[in-house]
């Protein structure tokens, strides 16, 4: 018999927490994107765990779409990082203060 679903759910919660902490504390835009990927993977792991627990393929289909959205998000996000770096020569989010009121 497989291990209980709660183990995988706790693992996904810990992974989500690590990603959230990194997103809140790191300054580099690239590292922040990687932490967003960590959080997305934690959600994917939760989806797959519930798909197994509830015997519903819809959870795995949701993971499929999350992966597509993550790929699109990384493409556009890294394009923005490149554009900002060309203009400001830095990827630190603390230096992007032009829109500060």
């Amino acid at each position: 018999m497989n291990v209980p679903a709660a183990w995988y759910l706790v693992l996904a919660a810990v992974l989500f927490g690590i990603g959230a902490y990194g997103l809140l504390t790191r300054r580099s835009a690239l590292i922040m994107f990687m932490c967003v990927e960590l959080m997305l993977n934690a959600v994917n792991l939760t989806f797959v765990t519930f798909a197994r627990t509830l015997s519903d393929i819809g959870g795995q289909a949701s993971v499929f779409f999350v992966m597509v959205v993550a790929a699109a998000e990384v493409t556009v996000g890294l394009g923005i990082v490149v554009a900002v770096f060309r203009r400001r020569h830095s990827t630190s989010v603390d230096e992007l203060t032009e829109m500060k009121g």
Binding site: M1, N2, V3, P4, A5, A6, L9, V10, A13, V14, F16, G17, A51, R52, T53, L54, S55, D56, I57, Q60
Partner: peptide, 25 residues
């Protein structure tokens, strides 16, 4: 994270048993 884990511990549907109805994956 503590809230999520507390929710998991207090709910009944994360026992690891698959549902009786529906097709198994």
């Amino acid at each position: 994270v503590g809230g999520i884990i507390a929710l998991l511990a207090s709910s009944h549907w994360v026992t690891g048993a698959t549902s009786a109805s529906g097709s198994s994956l």
